[in-house]
Nucleic acid binder design. Structure first.
Length: 736
DNA sequence: AAGGTTAATGTTTTT
DNA sequence: CATTAACCTT
């Protein structure tokens, strides 16, 4: 390469010394340990731009890898902004998108042709289920999703069926796991399809076994940049290591404290392995946090300090105004309803004070928890959005439309054909489908081809024969049309002529108009792509929801969904043992599971710029019934000097009452929780000591004194003196 | 082949 | 409780 030209310094001058070092340490392996809010993305994009501006490499000689399309888009935009022109011809994208691109170039090495289909999770599962049923596996005893998990885990670790040794074999499905995996992979090849895991697995396998291809990529990629490195799984690591062996200019940015995807195969150990595999690797820590106030940082730091085996980073406030911040609020509430009212009330208050709703988020452990807050915000007429619901391309009507496209351009795609052959209803039921499957299997031909032969040879009769014949003829016409009039016209014809659009027009359900609207949106999106193949790739790889974050709406989302985001005000409800930390995470993964939950809590707290309001309720509804709950251990782990307790008025009243009556409902906030949480380990309601008769005078913690009007098993209808008529559970009242 | 009924089962999720 | 998938009836 030519002598580096001194860069215009302005983009470097805006960095702090450690960030600048991370940008300017260009050659050789580099690991950047970047704490939350320390300018990780800025370093990565500036580094990218720096490589280009100092002419160390052309844009197409840099490989930049992210986990999400959003991160990839952001990086592309920010690099463009720094270099002052649209960044084109970049190898910048998600692991999967980059691998898909590579695999299309070398598909034949994996037994596929270049136009292979990328299957989504639904297709994967249907295919595996078919394989399992063909092998006469009892799918009641061995559920296909479980088997899928085994296969995915193997793929995550770079294990092709041939590489699975006895030691790695699973006893799943009575020792047939490896066989099922082999058969599943064979079916994928027959369908000319790859699942998500295959994209990485195939490419890595090709790089491993074809030195010439690998050498070609070594020549190409002078610099490699990796985002969210703590989230990489083994196969991703192997892929990176193979590609980085050429120039050894690999820079990985990550934060072990934000590793929250181990259940998806991510291995934090990849950070430790980095130093071993890349000898002489430099490590730079980014510890100045520019996002949050000092109390929030101290609270988060104190919490995460309870984890063992950290690489060790200490966040320090980088903002000049950081010291002025409020302490982290911890609010104790009577039950989950009151918690929702508290959050709703505080949001209203913030709104009145002029805070933008876009700067407020409610972060929960599990998706279903958003509902309580949704309901409350609807009542209060506060606009909100739930981030991360059903994605556009996952909607049934969109997947149907895509199946039409896939079946048309890819006659080998049995899954797509099977999906559409009776949608809209054509009278093709189980029996007809079985006939087609048998013909396909006995002659080793695709389902659609078998269907064609059955129509001609009379294997299908009457109405079914007519319907399938018509569909196949239409598909042939659409293929012609695609060559002549292009993909937008063709897809419009598909939806129209197949009767698919008509089906939804006839549908009287309230969702039907929305579905038609989505189909129109699909056609609009289609026009943005030059080819149908390009669009199908996009659909398979870009599943995220497009959203406008500048909307004046409160964001409701899971803690996982919030990673990488920040808000002025963050509500963190449901900090109760069993909910958060999640009981299942602890049961299944022990202390490792607990530590990941703690990292999740750390991620949650560090999303807040100015205000964090953590809350927990003493009673929570689990499915049908109310259960008392214990404050999360994480609450005690936040250093007390950075916390302000703020209890609701009803809680304060209950406290006084509880003290006076010795009714054991409250767990004092600072009390140590019992080691065994009985509520979760013994599901079902506690045994009643005595029944309460009609007419009895009772006392309730929340509603006060009243008289029992009726008894229904464990539910009482009570007329309370101050609260009126209520239906309550008997274990929540005492004889007065 | 379609619709209604019952039983099982409840994290986190990107690609 | 509430959702969904499998099952059974017509």
């Amino acid at each position: 390469m030519q002598t580096p030209v001194p860069p215009p310094a302005d983009y470097l001058a805006r960095l702090n010394p450690e960030q600048r070092a991370a940008v300017e340490t260009i050659d050789g392996p580099l690991l950047v340990l970047a704490g939350a809010g320390t300018g990780k993305t800025r370093v990565l994009t500036t580094r990218f731009a720096h490589i280009l501006l100092t002419r160390r490499a052309f844009p197409n000689q840099v490989l930049a890898v992210t986990f999400t399309n959003k991160a990839a888009r952001e990086m592309r935009e920010r690099v463009s902004a720094i270099i002052g022109q649209p960044a084109e011809g970049l190898w910048l994208g998600t692991f999967h998108a980059l691998c898909a691109r590579m695999l299309r170039r070398h598909a034949e090495h994996a037994g596929l042709s270049a136009n292979f289909t990328i299957l989504d999770t639904d297709d994967q599962l249907r295919l595996l289920k078919q394989v399992m049923e063909a092998e006469r596996i009892d799918t009641k005893r061995w559920a296909p999703p479980g088997m899928m998990g085994v296969i995915q885990h193997w793929k995550d670790r770079g294990l092709t069926p041939a590489r699975i040794t006895l030691a790695e074999d699973s006893d799943y499905a009575n020792g047939k796991a490896r066989l099922l995996y082999t058969l599943y992979q064979e079916r994928l090849r027959t369908l000319n399809a790859a699942d998500f895991g295959d994209l990485l697995l195939h490419v890595t396998e090709i790089l491993r076994t074809n030195p010439d291809i690998l050498a070609d990529y070594h020549r190409r990629f002078r610099y490699i940049l990796v985002d969210e490195y703590q989230d990489t799984n083994l196969i991703q690591y192997l892929w990176l290591r193979l590609l980085a062996q050429g120039h050894r200019n690999i820079c990985c940015v990550g934060d072990d404290d934000q590793s929250i995807y181990s259940w998806r195969g991510a291995e934090v150990e990849n950070i430790l392995r980095f130093e071993k595999d890349f000898e002489g690797a430099r490590i730079i820590r980014l510890e100045a946090n520019y996002r949050s106030t000092a109390p929030i940082l101290a609270a988060a730091s104190g919490l995460i300090a309870h984890n063992e085996g950290r690489l060790g980073k200490t966040l320090r406030p980088g903002r000049t105004d950081a010291q002025k911040g409020e302490k982290v609020s911890i609010v104790e509430l009577w039950d989950s309803d009151e918690e929702a009212r508290m959050v709703g009330g505080k949001i209203e208050e913030l709104r009145r004070e002029g805070h933008s709703l876009a700067e407020i988020a409610v972060l929960v452990r599990a998706g279903f928890q958003t509902r309580a807050f949704e309901e409350r915000l609807i009542t209060l007429a506060v606009p909100y959005r739930v981030v991360g619901g059903l994605r556009f391309y996952e909607r049934a009507e969109i997947r149907d439309a895509i199946a039409y496209m896939r079946a048309t351009v890819q006659p080998a795609d049995d899954l797509a054909f099977e999906r559409i052959v009776n949608v809209p209803r054509r009278g093709v039921g189980d029996a007809a489908l079985r006939t087609m499957h048998e013909a396909a299997r006995s002659q080793s031909i695709p389902l659609s081809v078998a269907a064609g032969r059955l129509v001609e040879a009379g294997g299908l009769k009457g109405k079914v024969k007519e319907a399938v014949g018509t569909l196949l003829r239409q598909m042939a016409q659409w293929r012609d049309l695609l060559g002549k009039d292009g993909h937008v016209v063709t897809v419009a014809a598909m939806l129209d002529e197949s009767g698919y659009t008509e089906m939804w027009k006839q549908d009287k359900s309230p969702e039907a108009p929305g579905r038609l609207e989505n189909l129109k949106e699909l056609l609009r999106a289609l026009a943005d792509f030059e080819t149908l193949a390009g669009f199908l790739d996009h659909v398979a790889l870009v599943t995220e929801n497009e959203e406008q974050p500048d909307d004046a709406k409160v964001s409701l989302m899971t803690l996982h969904g919030a990673k990488g985001l920040e808000f002025d005000t963050v509500f963190l409800p449901g900090w109760e043992e069993g909910v958060f930390p999640n009981q299942r995470a602890m049961d299944e993964n022990g202390n490792k599971g607990l530590e990941e939950e703690r990292r999740l809590a750390y991620v949650g707290l560090t999303r807040a710029r100015r205000r964090a309001i953590v809350s927990h309720a003493a009673n929570r509804r689990i499915y049908a019934n109310w259960q008392p709950s214990i404050p999360s251990r994480f609450l005690e782990e936040i250093p007390a000097e950075h916390v302000q307790q703020a209890n609701s008025s009803s809680m304060a009243r209950d406290r006084r009452v509880a003290a006076a009556t010795s009714f054991p409902t409250q767990f004092p906030l600072q009390a140590r929780r019992p080691r065994v949480i009985e509520v979760w380990e013994q599901p079902g309601r506690p045994a009643r000591t005595d029944s309460i008769p009609v007419g009895a005078r009772v006392f309730h913690q929340k509603f006060g004194y009243g008289t029992v009007k009726a008894v229904d098993d464990d539910k009482l209808d009570v007329h309370f003196e101050t609260a009126g008529d209520k239906r309550v559970l008997d274990r929540f009242v005492e004889r007065a």
